[in-house]
């Protein structure tokens, strides 16, 4: 498969009053054209940082090391002007809560016109025509184009967000918890839309979520982040059937679904990334931890073709 995006030793350090927070540490991830990759992990594990770094948006004084290669360009080296040509046009983002991402005083059509004209030199009428087309494809009646954001339901707003993200035909779509604020039925509707996009346009999608049920239903591959480290990577069917990292095992066990017989959880909480634990970052919470886990950092190793995990004892779970 042709690679669309590749991160190479990507590390991100945020400067806070207390010092540098090591939000991402040496992430190597390749995303193929037309693929859907789910990025999972608890709050504070670096999921959203990864999305922000790909899009080149972070707070001032953030240190970024390593590369993000997109279409042969290293995005981390781009200046703001060149990045602006890629952001939205080549790589689009949809957020958790569409309401906070729209201007309440602007009609839907003006949002679209603004987005389109920022990248393409077209008259407003042409921009509006494209907007109507994008809306209809998301099953939002085009007659609503003159309405304001608050006049729509949550699911409708998220569909408008998706339409807006797609109107410039980006090659990569990043969805950061796109259904978290929606109800189950609406969530399932939105997921079906994302799935249709995959099928009909061959869209490449990075789906960031804490809900592993969604990953199981929508994604081809899954990347598990823990405390800024990539700890497991593989196809969805492999990882769900045979999770090799104890953290992934814990995450899978703690899903509450209709066939759950009991309650499981992972002891403790993710570490403070100002001073991450030595050795394997998961060792303080790991039920299988050995002395070696406190001392040496387990490398990400390939256990079966395409299934990688960063655990000293990954073989045990094969």
């Amino acid at each position: 498969m042709e690679t669309l995006l590749k991160t190479d030793g990507l590390s991100v350090h945020y400067l806070t009053r207390r010092g540098y927070v090591h939000a991402l540490d040496g992430i190597n991830l390749e995303i193929g054209k037309g693929e859907t990759v789910g990025i999972v992990g608890e709050t504070g594990c670096g999921k959203s940082t990864l999305a922000k770094t790909i899009l080149g948006v972070h707070p001032p004084k953030t240190r970024v090391e390593g590369k993000v290669i997109f279409h042969k360009t290293d995005l981390t080296k781009l200046d703001e002007d060149s990045f602006r040509r890629i952001r939205g046009k080549e790589i689009a983002l949809i957020f958790q809560d569409p309401m906070t991402r729209m201007n309440p005083l602007m009609r839907i059509q003006d949002h679209f016109v603004e987005v389109i004209q920022a990248h393409d030199n077209v008259p407003a009428a042409e921009a509006r025509r494209r907007a109507e087309e994008a809306l209809t494809s998301m099953r939002v009646p085009e007659s609503r184009i003159r309405h304001y954001p608050h006049e729509f339901s949550g699911g409708m707003r998220q569909r408008i967000m998706i339409a807006m993200a797609l109107v410039l035909h980006p090659s990569l779509l990043i969805a950061d918890e796109p259904t978290t604020s929606l109800d189950v039925i609406t969530e399932a509707q939105i997921l079906q839309i994302l799935e249709d996009l995959k099928e009909s346009y061959g869209m490449t999608l990075i789906l960031i979520t804490h809900n592993l049920g969604i990953v199981a239903n929508v994604c081809d591959r899954i990347a598990v982040l823990y405390a800024g480290k990539l700890v497991e990577l593989g196809t969805v069917s492999e990882v769900f059937a045979r999770p090799l990292h104890p953290y992934t095992q814990g995450l899978l066990a703690s899903i509450i679904h209709l066939d759950s017989k009991g309650l499981h959880s992972i002891e403790g909480s993710p570490p403070d990334l100002l001073v991450p634990p030595a050795g394997c970052r998961f060792h303080p919470r790991c039920p299988f931890a050995q002395p070696v886990c406190q001392e040496s950092i387990p490398p990400l190793r390939e256990f079966t073709p395409g299934h990688l995990a960063a655990c000293h004892f990954g073989e045990k779970f094969l």
């Binding site: 109800d183 189950v184 039925i185 399932a188 079906q192 199981a216 969805v236 209709l258």
Partner: peptide
């Protein structure tokens, strides 16, 4: 509508249209 955490049980869902 509840997503099942099992990739082998993927299926197209017959969802009610629209929203509340």
């Amino acid at each position: 509508a509840i997503p099942e955490p099992d990739p082998s049980k993927r299926k197209k869902k017959d969802l009610p249209q629209g929203e509340v």
